[in-house]
Design a protein around this nucleic acid. Sequence first.
DNA 1: TTGAAAGCGCTAACAG
DNA 2: CTGTTAGCGCTTTCAA
Lengths: 338, 338
Amino acid sequence: MANILDVALKAKVSIATVSRVVNKSDHKVNPATREKVLAAISELDYRPNALAKGLLKKKTMTIGIIIPDISNPYYAEIVRGIQDVADAAGYAVTLHNTDKRKGGIARYVYLLREKSADGIIFSGGIIDGGETVSILGELRGKAVVIGRHDVDFPAVMVDNVEGADQAVQHLFDLGHGRIGFIGGPDGSTTALDRLVGYKKALVRNGIKHVPGLVKKGTWNPESGYLLGMELLQGKARPTAIVAANDQMAFGAIKAAKVFALRVPEDLAVVGFDDVPLGSYFDPALTTVKIPMHDMGAASMMTLLNLISGKPVEKIRLFRTTLQVRGSTVKLLEKGIKK
Amino acid sequence: MANILDVALKAKVSIATVSRVVNKSDHKVNPATREKVLAAISELDYRPNALAKGLLKKKTMTIGIIIPDISNPYYAEIVRGIQDVADAAGYAVTLHNTDKRKGGIARYVYLLREKSADGIIFSGGIIDGGETVSILGELRGKAVVIGRHDVDFPAVMVDNVEGADQAVQHLFDLGHGRIGFIGGPDGSTTALDRLVGYKKALVRNGIKHVPGLVKKGTWNPESGYLLGMELLQGKARPTAIVAANDQMAFGAIKAAKVFALRVPEDLAVVGFDDVPLGSYFDPALTTVKIPMHDMGAASMMTLLNLISGKPVEKIRLFRTTLQVRGSTVKLLEKGIKK
DNA sequence: TTGAAAGCGCTAACAG
DNA sequence: CTGTTAGCGCTTTCAA
């Protein structure tokens, strides 16, 4: 691999000059000299070493993303949004999954610091213990968080309380009185907010809160299925279920099938997120849409501002929108409703 | 940010000594001295700078992944497999999506070279033009490819020909004679192999190949839906469809609904990949299972061997397995069949 | 307009 | 067992 000295030698100039033409600096360099250098560069297929440059400039043009699991379509969509913006701005992105690994977030924060990442975006997962908090402290000024408000960073959020509220209201308007809830795990602020919204709508509509109708899952289809089974086998089964994400909603629908319940006639189901495949299910899934791609993109834009020292909004709040489809309302299905 | 000199000063030793205790080298260092250094390190919260180390050792403990799109669950699953192995081995992973961007693969190969990535894994997408080939040439010895055999790198493959063959055979055994095929785009070796397997099974079973029954899509649900519509509206509609991936199969099933065709009674559908949500669909999707996570993991293991100079197998071939579910066979649905 | 030289933070001989 | 020193490849004053 050719380095800057090789180029300098071949072009018969100093490495300083090579550096100048490579970086298109404002520093004047004679056109003829520039040509010689350019020729040497292409002949040697020279590419500047980003490590050396990063060491000197204290800027690596790399940011890190810390999420629970990329194979969860919710995070995949967010990551895509981040990458689209990062890539356009010339930043590379390293990805880190926290689940199934001890140490969780802290481990990757340290790793990213060692690698001199210019910034970190994290989403989901549970921040554990005080140690982590201090670690996050040193990141101040170069981290953005998506979907949680328990740490002091610029945040891109979505109004989960309102979203869950919309879901329940929709069901209530449809005549449902016994509405079950399959929530997320303890410790997740997203799960908490969605539960709060569920209860809020219940209260407003004068529906009595039945603790047995509320379950806590782990976001995946299996847990939605299992919890759906629990909910449905009780004597006083709900006529509708709100799941805290689409994956669990799919599981709940599967459970309904086991009990030979028709969806939406015997059981209405509302999901959360609006994952790409939701509109292809049968029945198509009614869900609370979260603009995941846009949120990912917004978080990266905020990080970009943070990095370049521009002012950033402390909280960027996105709104949810209810996507009504076949899992709550029987409708003539003609074509794809996206 | 404290550096090695800060630590050395505080511990009243030389930076060489600090380096020795940090790297736990075999070089002997007095226990008492080690303690002093360790104390200084934790007091200053010192972490070695990976850039400086990488510059010197020519090893960054970072590899790059180049894929078309992380929001496609097929790739998300592969990436997860890669990351699980990479992470366990201490490697960080940078992710790059090629679609919607000019330059495609070449652009990222260059970027990864600048950043001194220790290796590259790529999957999917179309390698374009001769320029790219030469770029790939310089990577020899540090790249692994998943699911394609048109470039000369160690490859992790899956027998796509056999998989498509299995799908068609399954349909034929069920009594289907008019079997449609929704394939992938031109230029994709995966798409080609699956088409070859389809035709192969047709020939073996003496089924006449009808060109109009073969369509080429773009892997996403929308294209499966559109092509499914085309296939189904002809006068001589197929009684079964094999889609080259699950996403398009979901789209085709949606199309069947539009024509009020029951699945599997009026139209049997087989997908490809076995994406996580397939078993939650109604009907659950019969599909040709590809061990995506394992393939991702295997590719990273191969890359690890490549990096450490160990011998590697030129081709690691995985087999497909047919997952028979409700979209081809009417069965008593009890519980989840995964 | 060009070049020389000082580092960025770290590892690895080589001395002592 | 510990310290000194020469770079890894690059950018950036400061001189010329």
